[in-house]
């Protein structure tokens, strides 16, 4: 059965209203304040650290975002924790909030499709986060220029730009999750708690659990263990499982982009073969992070579609 009219009718109306709402809301103000405060502190200390090192480094600017070595807190780590909170905070009451305010049936009685309402809300949330992230990104680069006194190279800007896009995609997957939960749970509190619970589970417990599960599914081979090496099959399972968490995907993509001399699994292999050396060029880094980036975007689309289908089939009356 063909529907008459465009599903996008009213999309821009919903989009701009929601965007305006987000940008002026107290909720967004608090979240943004948190991000700027934590991000600022972390970047400041990273800059201090960089100023104290005298060694020549072709990627000085990238160190501002992801300091080398075992730094306790990096800007990237702060983002990987705060971006999900930001996204869940903006999306958890997208649909159920309309039901609770009893505005849903009134809005849907206007000549628009449900598509426009859901997509407008999702896009507005994503734009809000994107605006916040771009602002933050520019602030950090500006701060770096002032504090380090070295302009970033073209390659560094390219890497940082892709890092920005990956971060927005990372926000997208959490926003899609939050919006989908807001379709499934009629109570906003339940939706927020379930989304935050899932985030905590994936961020804190899942990495350890993935290690254990990998060991169970494909036990380590004693011969590799004697050599002090991980068993390739076990390692593959563990990595595959841990990549269920968007945080892992994001971390891997960011490391590839911001640490050109990082040792990922493929470079680990190269290391054995004695091919360690120069940092990867930009295009190779992109190749390396490509599967993770695609996974993040695909996950966003998948979660959104689940929410979309559920929303289309939902009864309007409470």
């Amino acid at each position: 059965m063909q529907r008459e009219g465009s599903p996008w009718r009213g999309l821009s109306v919903v989009y701009f209203r929601e965007l305006f709402d987000h940008l002026t809301s107290v909720r967004m103000l608090v979240l943004q304040f948190l991000v700027v405060l934590l991000g600022g502190a972390v970047v400041y200390f990273a800059a201090e650290q960089i100023r104290n090192t005298t060694a020549e480094d072709p990627f000085l600017f990238l160190r501002l975002f992801a300091p080398p070595g075992q730094s306790l807190l990096s800007f990237v780590l702060v983002l990987s924790i705060l971006v999900p909170i930001l996204a869940i905070g903006l999306g958890f009451d997208a649909i159920n909030g309309e039901y609770n305010r009893r505005t849903m049936s009134r809005i849907l009685a206007q000549p628009i499709y449900r598509d426009a309402l859901l997509f407008g809300k999702f896009l507005a949330g994503l734009s809000t986060i994107a605006i916040a992230l771009v602002t933050l990104w520019l602030l950090v680069i500006g701060f770096g220029l002032l504090r380090l006194g070295v302009p970033p190279s073209g390659e560094e800007i390219g890497r940082l730009f892709i890092f920005l896009l990956v971060t927005i995609a990372y926000a997208g997957i959490w926003l899609a999750l939050a919006v989908t939960f807001s379709v499934f749970f009629r109570s906003t509190a339940t939706a927020a708690l379930v989304a935050l619970g899932l985030w905590l589970f994936l961020a804190l417990l899942w990495p350890a659990l993935a290690q254990m599960l990998g060991e169970v599914i494909s036990p380590s081979d004693i011969r590799f263990a004697q050599l002090g090496l991980p068993t390739p099959d076990t390692l593959a399972w563990q990595q595959g499982l841990s990549r269920v968490s968007p945080g892992t995907l994001y971390g891997e993509a960011v490391v590839a982009m911001l640490n050109p001399d990082a040792q990922s699994m493929t470079t680990l292999l190269a290391q054995f073969q004695g091919r360690i050396g120069a940092p990867l060029p930009l295009d190779q880094s992109i190749m390396q992070a490509w599967p993770q980036m695609v996974s993040l975007i695909a996950g966003t689309i998948l979660l959104y579609v689940i929410g979309y289908v559920a929303f289309q089939r939902q009864e309007v009356r409470a």
Binding site: G5, R102, T103, S105, R106, A109
Partner: peptide, 21 residues
């Protein structure tokens, strides 16, 4: 069901205990 936009253009609806923002 087939032409919801056409219908909703000419019909005004006041739901039971209507809500606003």
């Amino acid at each position: 069901a087939r032409e919801p936009l056409q219908v909703k253009r000419v019909v005004g609806y006041l739901p039971d205990s209507v809500g606003f923002y």
